[in-house]
Structures are given as structure tokens and as C-alpha cells.
Write a protein that binds this DNA or RNA. Sequence first.
DNA 1: GCGCGAATTATTCGAGCGTATAATAAGCCC
DNA 2: GGGCTTATTATACGCTCGAATAATTCGCGC
Lengths: 213, 213
Amino acid sequence: MNRRTYHRASEAERREDLIAATLDCIAEFGIQGATVRQIAMRAGVTGGLIRHYFSSKDQMLQAAYRKVMAGMTEAAVAAAIEGETARSRLRRFIVANVTPPVTDPRTLSLWAAFISHIQIDQSFAAIHRENYLSFLAALETLLSAFFVEEKRALSPAQCRTYAIGVNALVDGLWLEGTLAADTFAEHELAENALVSVEALLRLQPGELSAEQR
Amino acid sequence: MNRRTYHRASEAERREDLIAATLDCIAEFGIQGATVRQIAMRAGVTGGLIRHYFSSKDQMLQAAYRKVMAGMTEAAVAAAIEGETARSRLRRFIVANVTPPVTDPRTLSLWAAFISHIQIDQSFAAIHRENYLSFLAALETLLSAFFVEEKRALSPAQCRTYAIGVNALVDGLWLEGTLAADTFAEHELAENALVSVEALLRLQPGELSAEQR
DNA sequence: GCGCGAATTATTCGAGCGTATAATAAGCCC
DNA sequence: GGGCTTATTATACGCTCGAATAATTCGCGC
């Protein structure tokens, strides 16, 4: 009749653990393998506890989705703000998106698993939309600041078109580079990203891509 | 004791039906909801039959993945070959990839569901790689033909860089445009794709995007 | 240091999972 | 058109699922 001894954790900490365990399981076994029991085992608790923190398994999955997306945008934004000029911030933002830890097979697996649920469950669609718009807005801000700095006048419509294109390019390279990581040399992807973006924006070759500290 | 009456179908036809039913179920209920019983019901047969055509459910999923990817590339390639010049073929290829039926929420759902499995199951990784390389090769062929036609000399390395960038851009726009279809006007996506590709390739504005029959 | 609320475990439930096997009906061949 | 092959159905098996409930142990306030 000896029960397991256990530690009473704070709510924040426990939820964090459960979400992390959820992501581990999805990455390792797929969304079908992320069962309540597997997740609980991974988190070092018993299954029943999950329902104590989340009203259903589905709500926990949504929290996990938010976590993944937040991690991705935060990494890129954090890299960007360290730049001193608008050009440097744009450059750093782009590079961060095609460099670890953002380009990580595990992250991509998780991202794809959730994307595939967008058409099925409206809640996931809402989370996606929120993150997409916020990412696009961040990119648009970086871009217009860059054009101001370059003293290049741009209509808002033109700026939006650029943002959409650059967003697509960055997403696409992220996908390509993460899925076929072995076919790309060390910095080939980042270099390609910078060269491509400067072409997209009709900049001079080297304006973004040239080595500069 | 009355059993269901049934029709004995040809092997090809039955496999086709089962794969189609599998895709329907994944799109509608997610990969977790694509159970043997659901799939069988959708295909109008009983569950046991699946194991008569596929040695396991997993093998059927792989066949379904191949089907999805084949459909996507075929649509784009079919559009391309109707062009009379290399420029037109490139143009049509790009437009096809950001236009229905390729930009279809259902297709994207399916694609993502399978992508999320390639880190888990090697078989899916192999299917992905095969399709990625073939798509990239097709694009590279279109590109180099285009450059020959334009009398613009390009090193193979340069051509590969371009192919990777254009591939990323097209993939990214496909993603963006399909996931946020409601935020894009009728032909905005295709127009953006052409303008972006011509910028990527350092062409004159309008060289690809200008209306031309 | 004790009591009490609540975090956590343990156990149970019915449903549904993928698979295996046996019974049956369909339809081609002669 | 009767017999044989086999595509298909029907049924059963052993597991695992998400969820609900009851029992317990933790650790803070006093």
C-alpha cells in the first residue's frame, strides 16, 4: 500500500514541466504518441495530475503550441535587438531565423504537428494567426526602419509586399534548411538568406550580406 | 446472419480508394483520428480489408504520403510544360505553386501531418527527401533553361543558390498564402511571387511579372 | 508541531485502438 | 452453371486511450 512519495510544486513550475513533457513526447513519438500516460511519465508524475492543471488534454496541447511559437519568435527578436543599426537588426533577425536554435528538427516537427491541426481545431487556428501576424508585424517594423535609415522612401503597400516576400523566404529557408540540413554547409543557409533578401529588396549586392561587425 | 453484400474491386482501384479515404480522415480528424475503422468506413469497406492490401496501417500512411506529394509536384510540372518559352515555363511553374489546387488548406494539413513524422520514422524521411530533391531538380532545370534563353551565363553554384532561394520563396508563399488565405486578395499572391522571384534573380522589374500571353 | 486544504497518487471505467483469424460470398474459368 | 480462388466480412483479442473518482500525503498557517 506504499504510495509514491512526491513533491508539491508551484502551479507555474508544474505547468511548465507538463508542457515541456508534452513537447518531448510529440517530438519523439508524434502527436499520436503524446498520450496522457506518456506525458505524465516523462514529467515524472501520474496521469491524473494532468487533469488537475488542464481541463483536458487538448487544452494542454494548445498551451504547448503557444510555447513553441513563443520560443521561435523570441529567439529571433532577441537576436535582432542586439543590433545597433536598423540594417544590423534586420540582418540579425534574418540570420537568427535560419540558424540554431530556430533551425532545429525537433522544433520543426512540433511546428508541423500543430500546423496540421489548424484546419481541424479552430483554437489552433487562432494561435497560429496570432503568431503569424505578430511575426509579420515585427518584420515590417524592422524593414521600414531599415528603409528610413537608408533614406529610401517606400509606400506602405510596397513595404507590406516586401514583408510578405521576406517572410516567405525566411520561412522557406527555415523549412528547407532544417529538413535537409545535411545538404547545406555550415553557413551556407545564412549566407543564402542574406543574399536572397538583399536581392528581394533590390539592394546592392553585399549591402546586407557583406561581413560586418 | 446476413452478411453485407459487396463488390470485388481491382487491386489498383481498391488501394486508390483506401488511400483517398486515409487522406480524407487525416484532413478531417488529424492523424490521430485516422484510425483503421474510420478509414474503412470512409472507403465503404470493413476494417479487416486494409490489412489485405497493406501489411500494416503504417505502410498505408506512407503510400498516402507519396500520393499527396506526387499530386503537388505533378500539378506544378503540368502547368509548366504548357509554356512555350523557358521564361513562360518558369513563370507558370511559380504561379502554379501559389494557386489552387496546390494552395489548398486540406493539402497543407496533410503535408504538415506527414512532415511532423519525418523525424520519427525514417520511412517518411526517405519519401520527403526523394520529393524535395526532385522538386529542386525540376526547378533548377527550369532556371538554367531560362538563363540560357536569356543568354545570361551562370555558374552551376550560382544556379543552385538561385534554385534554393526560389524554392524557399515558393514554399514560403505557399505556406503563407494557404494558411492566411483570407488576408490576400485574388491574385496578390501570384503577383507577389513573380515580382519576388524576378527580384531574387536580379531581373528587370516586369521581366517575369508583366502580363504576357 | 498539528491540523486542514489541496496537490498528487492510485484505481477504475467504458470506449476504441491495431491486428489476427475464421467464415463467407463474389465472380472468373472451363 | 458449378467449382475454386480469393477478396471481403465478421468477430474476437489484448492493449491503451482519456477521463472520472476515491484515497492519500504533503506542507503551509497557526
